[in-house]
């Protein structure tokens, strides 16, 4: 598992460097020459403010702490997310997203100890993800890099006593989506994403359906919808 997380780290890191280079190159590139007047509005690239929502499943990596307690653990969870992106005239779009993920559930049977009599400990792990970042659309693919923070929340129930605690950590995520539907101002993607929060030793993959729509377009009337 640790090796898997290292590959995830490496992948996110490599993509981050690549994205940074692409960003810098895009910003260094000379201003595009004014294009000839378009013959049809849908081929023109106009900035817009895009809202998206996504839902999907997640798979959490990690190690069980004390296998000797014969615990059970479910690492498959669910994630929901909303976000805003500024679809610029270039192919790099800044975005801001907020997500909630219910990541894992577990049960372990504890023997009697200093904490009291034997009993079952129920565990739940969830996380809030707050992530600014960039997306880049190339052909029908939409790459995404986010660097933000996670609030990891764990909840326990033991001997009818419920408690929870949380931890804060820097988080980065990398995703690639495939655009399955584009009807001008509405788009539908399937996206795979890796999320890593090294400070809390947390890494998971998600498979999402992403619905995106332009809510504000800049520089044109509403009737002149653009598509890339």
């Amino acid at each position: 598992m640790r090796r898997t997380r290292k590959w995830l780290h490496a992948g996110v890191f490599a993509a981050g460097v690549g994205s940074a280079l692409a960003t810098a190159q895009a910003q260094q590139a000379p201003e595009p020459q004014p294009a000839p007047a378009p013959s049809a509005a849908p081929t023109e690239m106009l900035p817009s403010l895009e809202f998206w929502g996504s839902v999907g499943g997640s798979v959490l990596f990690g190690q069980q702490a004390n296998p000797q307690y014969n615990g059970s653990i479910t690492r498959v969870g669910a994630l929901g997310e909303i976000g805003l992106a500024y679809r610029s005239s270039y192919f790099i779009d800044p975005h801001l997203s907020v997500a909630y993920a219910s990541l894992a559930r577990g049960d372990v049977h504890l023997p009697a100890g200093q904490y009291g009599p034997a009993g079952d400990l129920n565990q739940h792990l969830a996380a809030w993800l707050f992530s600014p970042g960039f997306t880049a659309e190339i052909w029908r693919l939409r790459f995404r890099l986010g660097l933000g923070f996670a609030v990891v929340k764990q909840s326990f129930t033991y001997q009818n006593d419920h408690s929870s605690s949380s931890a804060f950590a820097i988080m980065h995520q990398l995703g690639v989506g495939f655009n399955a539907l584009d009807s001008g101002s509405f788009r539908l993607d399937a996206e795979v994403r890796a999320v890593v929060a090294p400070g809390v030793d947390m890494a998971f993959l998600t498979l999402n359906v992403v619905a995106r729509g332009d809510i504000i377009e800049f520089g044109r009337s509403n009737s002149q919808v653009s598509a890339r």
Partner: peptide, 19 residues
């Protein structure tokens, strides 16, 4: 531990031992 996050002072010994 998958369920091992947060502050020491916020978890009970049972939670710590199990997680």
């Amino acid at each position: 531990g998958t369920f091992c996050h947060g502050k020491v002072a916020e978890v009970s010994l049972a939670e710590l031992r199990g997680s």
